[in-house]
Design a protein around this nucleic acid. Sequence first.
DNA 1: CCGGGAGTTTACCGCACGGTAAATTTTTGT
DNA 2: ACAAAAATTTACCGTGCGGTAAACTCCCGG
Lengths: 210, 210
Amino acid sequence: MSESDGSASERDTEAVIMEATFRALREHGYADLRMRHIGEEMELTRQVIHYHFEGKYDLLSSFLEYVIDQYEGSVDVDRDTDPRTELEARIDQCLFGPEFEEFTHWDRMKVYHELYTYAQNDEQHREIFNEHYERIRGSIVEVVEDGIKQGVFRDVDAERMGQLVTDAIHAARGRRISLGHDDAPEEARRAIHEFILDPLCIDAEGDRYS
Amino acid sequence: MSESDGSASERDTEAVIMEATFRALREHGYADLRMRHIGEEMELTRQVIHYHFEGKYDLLSSFLEYVIDQYEGSVDVDRDTDPRTELEARIDQCLFGPEFEEFTHWDRMKVYHELYTYAQNDEQHREIFNEHYERIRGSIVEVVEDGIKQGVFRDVDAERMGQLVTDAIHAARGRRISLGHDDAPEEARRAIHEFILDPLCIDAEGDRYS
DNA sequence: CCGGGAGTTTACCGCACGGTAAATTTTTGT
DNA sequence: ACAAAAATTTACCGTGCGGTAAACTCCCGG
């Protein structure tokens, strides 16, 4: 039990608040989020929030880190495969989420994308997102680099290609969320395979997705 | 002067309000936008807004259409060129904006992307964006189809490719705005050329961007 | 079995919010 | 020139917001 800081119940309550914040954000959206809404999503009263966090901004900052930790913690791909398979697995996870979170994945993504957009108005949040984005993008770039080294991918600029793939994923998710294009992730998957991955591979015919 | 509805001064004031709304949104962001902020950006008092619009929501709905009209009205490419050149021109305009609006383009895009993200919480706004998005994407798909018909592009799925390009553009813009990646549009341009446009062209070596 | 601290609730506050009504100025029609 | 209509300003309102203070409950060491 000896934790570096905070008792078990402290952390318990904070987790409850985080999940309540998630539900409130999902329901009302960032712009219309009220402390009262978070309180309504908990058994506890809304005032306990002020005991655990210094205010609305502090709460939202903590929540941002919570969401990003969840995102990154959920990434889990088999690294002992060929680069193409690993790359596909990473793309699929970004587009569709981990299997065990099928039902909340898009709700969490909705909240994630909203925080992402509003980060442009907050330097601190922007930096948190930058570090996070760099890790996501980096993990894709890395696989491309491995593939090139192993001779299964063409000698492309891995940074540039990784960025393009990351962008395509991000936009497709945003399109599903903001515009309601339910098939955007699936279509993006096909487009990435057909126009980016297939030409990237040296010998393969890329006929898996005719 | 005989307009279908509204006098000249009515339209004048409404334009003033639209531009004030733009400035207020740029400065405070959507979540922290207050009617008072819009008033501060005008010579007129904030209460005139209620004479011309039914309320905050009505104002924001009108503003959304105003922003989208501006976006689409600014698109201007030479249609009497080969498909590749026209496609490049359209991509450049989406990424960098029209030349004559160099200084406000990114401010307007910031506001545009914020409205885009918030549209997920408002069915009406979502539909307006959907129609707009379809026009933007359609104009790119069209050029790809022309290129295929003319035999200068490979016979790819034009819808899918057009969507991929549109997504890449959208994400790069969002990345510049939300994360501050100033070179994102330029990098996206390079990536689209190298990984999508060059392979798309049938004979070209694609050596313009080695 | 009780003193004390951590955690939570109850009650409340000041204020900024979006909006309205009436007074006032400006424009328009004749 | 002037009355009516349109547009804008002034003054104000009720509400819901984030936050605080004090009371209360629960739990644990002695």
